[in-house]
Write a protein that binds this DNA or RNA. Structure first.
Lengths: 146, 146
DNA sequence: TTTAAAAAAGATATAAATGTCTTTTATTAA
DNA sequence: TTAATAAAAGACATTTATATCTTTTTTAAA
């Protein structure tokens, strides 16, 4: 419920690169997959689209790997979610009922839409930077929780 | 996000039977599928497990179909959800991260768990009866919103 | 300039959710 | 007791999400 595997892998991968690559070191997929116990090839596919969307940089070849860029910490969680899961889930009826809208709400509309909106708001105001910034209430304490 | 198709079909099917079958009339799958614009065979599969779990009654043969029983209106939404979607999604990390728990929380733990708990609470206190009881704030106004 | 490293690309595989079809069983009315 | 009706059961199909494997391209260092 709530969040896809792809989203989880992408987020954890980015945060791992952010924390381990602070000194400018490039981080390889193998290291991320090992450290986070995540399927290597699937992670590679996800990271590829993260790079394609400019959230991380990457370089091929020896000493290559993934690294943060100027955009990374300003990216909002909602943007990452759109990338991994698409946008359709963010609008539309929670029961996938086409005729449902605020004027003609399905039985669960108000209660559930309300909670979904809260999640969207949360994800629209939280950046990746917030998660690695100790001054921010959202920050992560330890790499072991990625 | 949030709710599966199966859950939506089950809920809408049950509510349709509740509203259309008030006079004791049995409601057939074909009618439900037609009226709610839902795939007939898939709905039949879902309704079968609804009956197996005692949430509705059914009788075969001419003039047969689905009907409410004494239990129907007391069933909580969370019970229906457990039936259609299983229980695993209700516990465990929202990022499917095995090492995550309240002492060692993943980056999104607190914020998202909080919202999920709200949904669980909502679904644990709302019954099917609430949705068809005009005195209740959750009630549905019209069959067209099923 | 050759070799090795590492991501990119793309093909393929598996699992889970969703959807469809056919056969069987139970029930009712004629 | 037969014919028609409708759910139950179960097999099968499709789609989407997840996962894996192989080949290609780029890069750096020797």
């Amino acid at each position: 419920m709530f969040l896809s595997k792809s989203f989880g892998y992408a987020l954890r991968g980015i945060l791992y690169v952010s924390l381990s690559g602070k000194d400018g070191r490039k981080i390889q997929v193998d290291e991320i997959a090992d450290q986070l116990s995540v399927p290597r090839h699937f992670l590679a596919k996800v990271m590829k689209s993260v790079v394609k969307n400019g959230i991380l940089d990457s370089t091929k070849g020896p000493y290559g790997g993934f690294s943060i860029n100027k955009k990374t910490f300003n990216v909002k969680l909602i943007q990452l979610m759109e990338l991994t899961d698409g946008t359709e889930q963010l609008s539309g009826c929670v029961l996938s009922f086409k005729k449902c809208n605020s004027r003609n709400p399905c039985p669960l509309h108000d209660r559930v839409i309300n909670l979904r909106d809260k999640l969207i708001t949360e994800f629209s105001t939280t950046t990746l930077g917030d998660l690695v910034d100790e001054k921010n209430p959202n920050f992560i304490k330890s790499i072991s929780v990625l």
